[in-house]
Each structure stands twice: as C-alpha cells, then as structure tokens.
Design a protein around this nucleic acid. Sequence first.
DNA 1: GAGCACTGC
Length: 1187
Amino acid sequence: MVSTPEERAASVPELTYPDLPVSARRDEIAEAISRHQVVVLAGETGSGKTTQLPKILLGLGRGVTGMIGHTQPRRIAARAVAERVAEEIGTEVGDLVGYTVRFHDQVADRTLVKVMTDGVLLAELRRDRDLRAYDTIVIDEAHERSLTIDFLLGYLKELLPRRPDLKVVITSATIDPDRFARHFGDAPVLTVSGRTYPVEVRYRPLGEDADQADGVVAAVGELPPDGDVLVFLAGEREIRDTAEVLRGATRAEVMPLFGRLSAAEQHRVFAAHTGRRIVLATNVAETSLTVPGIRYVVDAGTARISRYSLRTKVQRLPIEPISQASATQRAGRCGRVADGICIRLYSLEDFESRPAFTDPEILRTGLASVLLQMAALELGEITAFPFLDPPDPRAVRDGRALLDELGALDGGRLTRVGRQLSELPVDPRLGRMVVEASRRGCLAEVLVIAAALSVQDPRERPLELQQKADELHARFAEPASDLLAWLNLWRYVTEQQEALSSSAFRRLCKREMLSWLRIREWQDLHAQLRRVARRLRFEVETSGDPDAVTTSLVSGLLSQVGQRTGQREYLGARGTRFVIGPGSALAKKPPALVAAAELVETSRLYARGVVRVEPEQVEAVAGHLLSRSYAEPHWSKRRGSVMAYERVTLYGIAIVARRAVQYARVDPVASREIFLRRALVEGDWQTHHAFFARNRQLLADALEVGVRTRSREVGVGDEELYAFYDARIPDDVVGTVTFDRWWKRARRADPTLLDLTLDAVAVDDEAHPSVWTSDGFTARLGYAFDPGGSDDGVTVDVPLAQLAQMRELTWQVPALRHELVTALIRGLPKALRVPLVPAPDTATKLLALVDPSVDELFPALSRAARQVGQVTIPVEAWDASTLPGHLRPTYRVMDGPREVARGEDLGALQASLAPAVSEAVAAASGFEERTGLTSWDVGELPASVSADGAVGYPTLVEDGSSVSLRLRAVPSDAEHAAGVRRLLALALPSPSRSLADGLPVAERLALSRHSPLPALLADCQLAAIDGLTSTDLRSASGFDAAVAAVRAGLATALPRIVRGAAAVLAAAAELDGLLDRMPSGPAREDLRAQRAALVHPGFVTEAGAARLGDVGRYLRAAVVRAERAPREPGRDAVLQAEVDAVLARIPAPGVLRWEVEELRVSLFAPSVGARGKVSAPRLLRAIDQLR
DNA sequence: GAGCACTGC
C-alpha cells in the first residue's frame, strides 16, 4: 500500500445501494460495525450480504488505513464478487476493487477492497503476522467451516487484542450464527432475511426394499410437469444407475453433473433448452455450482463425506446421511426463481433424527498440513489454540506422527525440512518428495509429478467415450509407475503446445480428452513450485534416472507402501489391506512392493497413483522408520565372511524378507568369535597365509608326536587354540577382509605373532600371559627377573601407532596381582593401614571381591575394603609411586623392530611422543593430511580412521589465515571446532560489510555514528557459529548447511537490527527535539541522561524495538482516553492519572519503566509544562516514532 | 473395474 490514507480516503466514490434486504438495514449494520470490533452478519442467499458489505464498510471510512480484505471459499466466487462490487461502485477490477487467488493477482496500490480466497489470506499470515495490510477483514460464508476458515477464525481471535484498530465481520448463512458470536466474546449478530421463494417440503421415504432410482422416478412423476428438476445423489454410480432408469421412464432430458465430468459436460447445464430437464447431481450443486432455473428438488438425502479414519490412518469416503443444514441448503436450491417443491426420499422422523450440521472439516480430515503451518507460524500448542471445534487429540497425534515420518518435526520442533515443507504450497507428503528430489538431482522431474498430484486430473473421461479416452491416455502409461506416466504426458503436452497455435492446442486437448484448463493449472502450479524451490536454493536438475525419481517419490509415501500378499491384495502400514485401483497401469500385474500416492477407502481400500518400488529405494529414505532383525549368523567359507539373514520392516511390512548380509556390521563381537572359531580354530577356510598352513601342519604333527611320546599331553584343545588367537588378534578383525588387512601390517612388525608353538599354547598360562589385549589391539608382554634393574618385572611392548590408545596395565599380570595389592596396602598411611593388617591376607580377600577385567584398580580396592573391613579408604589414598620397581610395568614404545622410547610413566611417554604418534597413525592408515585450506574441499570427514588397531581422528586445525587437516591420535573437539570456526569465518561475508551493503545512505551514516551495530552483527554471526556443534561439521553437507544457516541468520538479523536501529534513532531524534525546547534545569539533565540510555546498544535489537513499541501502545491508549476527558481544569490530573495507571501496569522496574517515566516527566514536569511545549498530539507522534 | 467437494507464499 503505497498510497497515503488521505489519497485513499479521497478516492472513495459515491456509494449507491441496489434494492436488497441488506441495503435496507445498512445504517443498523454500519452502526454495529462502528461500535464493535467483531460483528456477525447472518443472511441467506439473495440478502446481498456479500456484495453490499464492502460498500457499507467503505461508507464507514474503512479501507483507508489498510485494505478491506474479503475472503471467499472458492476462486471463482472470489473473482465474481470482485467483479460485482467493482461494477457497483463504478471502478475496474484491479483498481479500487481487486482480487487475489492462486496464480492471479489483480490488486493495485490504491485498491480499497481486496477479495481473495481464504487460502490466500492464510498464506499472507506468514509475511504479515498482524495483517497490517488490512484495516478490516470479512470472512464470508464462514458456515462452510473449511479447515482454512476454522484456522482463520482461531487466528483472528488471537489477533484482535493486538490490533484494536482492526474490524472483523463474519458472515454466515442463518444456521447457528451464535456459534461465531460466542467465539468472539459475544459479538453482536445481525440477521438479514434472504430474498427467496417459499419451498414446500414433502417426505416420500423409500419402501423397505425399494430402489433409489425408482424412488426418484416416482418423485419426478409426482411433480407438476413444467420446470426443471435437480436431483441430489451421493455419487457417480448412483447418478449413472438413476439416469438409466430415468431415461426409460421419462422423455425429459436427463443430465448428470459431478466434479469429475469434463468442463464441456458440466457446462451443458447452463445451455438454454426447451422441455423439462432433470439434472442428477452430487454435492457440487449444493455449494460450488448453481444450476439455473430449478423449480423442483429431489433429495436422496445422502452424500459421500470424506473422513479421516483414526483406526486405519487413511482417508475414507463413506456414503452418509446428510445433515439437516445440508438438506435445507439443497431444498433452497429450488426457491430462487419461484415457489418450489422439494421431495425428500426419506421421512420427517429420519430428517429430525439427523445431526443439525455437517461436521466441520477440521474434525474430518488429516491435520498434518495445519500442524505444519501452525509450527511455522510459531503458534504454540494446538491444544491452546482457540479453535471453534478443537480437533480430536488422536488426530493431532496422527498428524504429528506423519510430520515425524516426513522428518518435518523432531521432538515437536520444526526441522529444516519442516521449514522447507511449510514453504512449499502443496501437501506435506508432496513437499517431502520435492525436498528429497533436490538432494537426488531430479527436481525437474519431481516438480512435474508433485504438481500433477495436487491438481485435478487433466485426463477427461466423458461418460459416453470412456473407452476411447482410456486408449488415448494409455499412450502415456508406464508399466511400473503411474507417477512416471505424468512425465510422459507433460512432455507430450509441452511439445504440442510449442508446436501448435494456442487455438490448435486447445482443439488437440479436446480431441485427445485432456482438460485444457486443468493442464494450465498444472503448468501454473509447476511454475509456482519451481519459483519456491529456487527461493529455497534447490537446484532444478533433470537426472533422467527413474530410480532417483522413484526414491524421491517414496520419501513422501512411506506409510503408503504395500507388500503384495495375494493375487491382488496388499498389506499396508499398520496391518491395513488394499488393492490397486483399476485405473492404474499396475492393476493387471501387481508388483511385489508398491507405494501409493493416495489410499482412499470407498467400497474397499483402493490405491491410486501406484509406483513399483525396490526395497533399496525404500531403505534409502526410510532409515528412521525401519526396524531390522537378524537370524542365523553363520560362517560362509565361500564368501570368507560371517553372514546372517536380515529382515527389514517398515510399519510392519517386510520390505526385505531374507537378505544375506555381513554379520560384522550388526554384531562385530559375535562375528569375530564365529570367524575365529570356524576359520582359524576349526580351519574351515581357504587362505594362502603361511602361518595358517604352518599351524595346521603343527597341529597334525603334534597329534602324531603326542601318540609316540608319553612325555606330555600334547593334543591342543579348541578352547586353548581359541584363546591363543583371541589374545593376538585385535577386536576389529571380524572376517577375512579385516583379517587380511590387519595381518598385512601386523606381520611386518612381527611375522611370528600367529605362529603356534606348543609352548605358546601350553606355557602361555593365565598367570603369565605373553600378550595383553586392550581396546582392540595387542601388546606383547615380556618378563625379566633382575632385582634392582630398571626392567625388573613386566615389560609391555607398545607399537608407536597405538601408543595413544594404550592403557596402563594397572592391575598387573595375574601372577603379580596379589603382590601388587599387598604392596599397595602397605603403602597406605598408617591410620588407614592398621585395620587392613595382615596385608597379604587382606589382599586375598580384596581380590576375591573385584573383577580386573572391568573394574578400575583404586576405586575397586576401596569398595572391597569397605565390604571386607568396614573401613573407608579414600580413593586418593592409594599411592602407586611407592611400589617397588618390579611391580611397575615398563613400557617399551616400538616403531617396527626399533625401540623408540621406554619408561614406567605411560602418560609422560604419550605426551612427549604425541606428534610422532599422530604421524605414525597417519602413515599407517595412508590418510592424506592437508594444509592451507580456505574452504571445505576435504569431502566427508569420517569420525575416525583406524589401522592395525591404531585409531586416528581427522581434525581441522586452525592455522593462521588458513586451516589444516591433521590426523590426531587423540581426538580434540576443541581443536576441530576452532578449525571449523576459522573455515566458516573464511566462508562467510564480513558482518559490517554485509550490513553496509544492505543499507541506504542515510542509515549508513547513522551506522557510522552508532558503532554497536556491526558489533551486534558480528555477535550474531559468532552466536550462530557457536550454536552449531562440531559433530554436525564433519561433513561437506554439514558445513554447507552451517554456512547457509549463518547466512540466513544474518539475512534475517540484518533487517531486524536495521529496523530496531531506525526506531531507536527516530526516538532519539524526537527526544533531541524535546531537549532543545526545554529550559535548562534538573529535569532537562534528567531527560538527557535518559536519552543516552535510550541509544544504549541493548536497544538496537528487535526485542528492544518491540519493548519501545509496548511503551508506545500503552501510552497511546492512555493519552487517547485522557484526550476524551472533558477539557476542564482537572484534565491534567486525569491525563496524569492515566499515565500513572500505565506505569502501574508495567511490573518490573527497568528500561521499559524508565521510558514511560521519562515521557511522563516531559508531559508534566513544571519546567516543561503540560501543554504548550509538549502537546498531546505531539506526544502521540513521538510514540509512533518509537514504534 | 472405482473415486464428495474445495483450496495455497
């Protein structure tokens, strides 16, 4: 709205009112509107409420500070209303009166009345939360109670207190207008009569087993012979049956009318004709389409009503008795031109037993879309939202579950995907397909399909030519996918449209049974979706890969996947059963696994828009919903690995029934054991490893020797063999591949590690193990008896690359453990030691109570001591430094055969060798380190890299003006985070630059004087970076997301900060003006101090500006009231009292109170004067500036 | 071998 209120007010033309019931009562209506914020206007068809109300509002001076917004449930109606109102006030559509519907916008800067669909108003909320574009809102036809209307009514109720200047008119048919009035705190209701003719209602219930068609024939026969008849039936099938019977029984013209009819067929009802016409119609004729010239109505009393099933979570379309309101509406269809007769094919008792109103849509439909919009608008809990009829909590739960399925919600909060879905003007399921396609490079294809699925099917099937239509449409069919077929049709249509003139193209459409209008809607929606996709920075790419397209489609249809269980029958999510609808190309040869664009239950549950899917496609997008189970783990000699059978289910459907998989991924521990036992111990393995052959030979020989000599028990048992391999082979060896990889390196360090010797098996007793395994790697142990020598006791050989993972051998080897604990007891301070003597006995008792394989040494000893002797030994009292040398293991760090270092202090070795260890790990794993990075060109970083039991952690390291990628033996999240921060900073624009770029010159000047702004923006950027965890930032995509998030954060913060700054600067200027006029004195000094506080950096935020806005609103209300008070000597006191009342409403002392007090001072301080220097209007202007 | 009717940045 660029025009000024003055210009707008001047543009309002002379208003005249045609002779209609509403016109006669326009003064009363105007009076009610001017006195109340909300008015309910009830009136039937012909009352003139829709067309006259906008003019009455203009007459009241509405439409001047904002537009009059007028909503209609349907696009056609919105346009018709705009045309009608424009004509009546003598302007063009798009000038003083305009309209906006999807794809069409005819609204100008000077438009006073804007007619739109309610969906448009809903969509506008996103950009205009307080509907500031309007000073008046009319919700027309509110009794229709669509989802959108109910949502708007709830939203308006919450908005009204924030917009005291906004007027709202709710119009409704005369049914139950009090319902709306109560919703808006007892708003006044004005009822205007309609201008219709009386309708006589006759009840002619069908007999016990009478046919409905016969009932219609009888009813028609009863009616006077002249005049057209409108017959209401439930659906297409009833219409067809009745038409057949009726054509045999009457010479009148019989004409079907329902939504799926072609445009031409629908249009026939408007053609002139002679003789009687009988129109057989569905609910289309009740609201959307007015059949002209109807004198009689026959009402079968039923309709198909869409209902969401809480049990099966699918949409149902049952035939139900219609409500009384609906029956009344149907009857009214014959009172428009003359007196009418309505024959109901049911009894009066039946009528009276019916519900008064059709359930509002919010009680009948899936709620995912509404919940998504509410979340995007940050409206809080749906249970707290003031709906006229709150939806069923179970339906709310289901809606949330669907959003969870789509990845739009995470723990009730909107995710990034959720935000994207809320931007896309299609059903969330379809939006999800679009999002997925943007990731899979096939957005061009999926946009076409998603658009097709949300418009009405452009393929026409005229009643008489169905077979021909099917043949023509079959040209586009795809054997495995109804949805890919849309691409064929799209291509064909696009090519033809380019090749032909527009009239030739229209003729082609007609000839080939395509609806030109619906194709245009499809193309329009496609264009709109593409615009939104671009805005979301999705790449619109064509992949040409049907697999990618199908996978993207499946991502939106996960709870509509089905597995064939019979000839035609499918098992769907949560035990539902469905069949493929006969219109699908897949109906004849139903594949094993499908996904359906739609599941609707009519006579049975039918799937429409069916796609054959592969298990892998479902798995690719259903990760979070799949459950997997594994059976029969076994060693496969052929594959050389441990396998198991995997079963993957989605909502109870077996996507994969029995798939052989590597068991190591599932259970590495069990897998490893199976590998060791079957391959190594039992020898069921085909391998060329020399040690394997040698060991087999040795075992065979040993058996031989054992028989010849009696000197020893030589036969080696499986358990001993297992223990031998288990001790030497690290934990991450789980099959052939991992074994080979490990052994290739390990044998370089020690080629004989796996050589079985009878000694190794026999001598390697539990008390003196020759290897020690810890955290997946193996260290060799050596023993020395050298009292006083530095190597006395146990020596642990640690390969350099594994040093970082090495843990201290705190518990010693079993043989020395008792001695260790005894020595530790003796090392305790005397007071603690006394209760534990004799130490050797106590050591035995303590060791019986601990488990060295899991316990930590000192805490375990303290715990055991408490159990044994009821004594408390603080953990820190144990002192390993008092131990004699042979009880302290010596660590030898080995680089291959070379000793690098040795010592008893493992921690010191680790610290001093850390750089060498990292290098060794990097060398061992072949990991490529990088330097000089200034952008993310390192691909996906794995969390860790392992080689030979050594683990390295890829880490980004800040390195001056660039970043290095290093492999660290010890993970350093802080170092990584600093590196990522540095990279992000390099990838992002400088805050002050980006701020300055977005500002006009005047604001730049202001910016230079008020330096907190760039600092604030920098804070914003840093806060955004800090808000991103380092685990998110190990991948290129995570990094890109972070850059995008920070950029988006800056983009939104920028205008907010500028707005805040502008508000504050304006306020400051205003106060400067005040200060100039004030005589010097304490009051002026006071105000000057407060002005300084006003430009405090803390105010330069949206929150700061909002607080100033609050001050403004409170004060403004107070002053307005005060202004109305009589102009008498007491006026200042009244004004002062009002402002004091405002002050009392601001609870906490603080900046907000300061501001009000400051203004109070400027109003009433004796040095300034209540009037004169600061007048009330001037104060009002100042407050406006503050906002 | 079957399907009410609407609607959106």
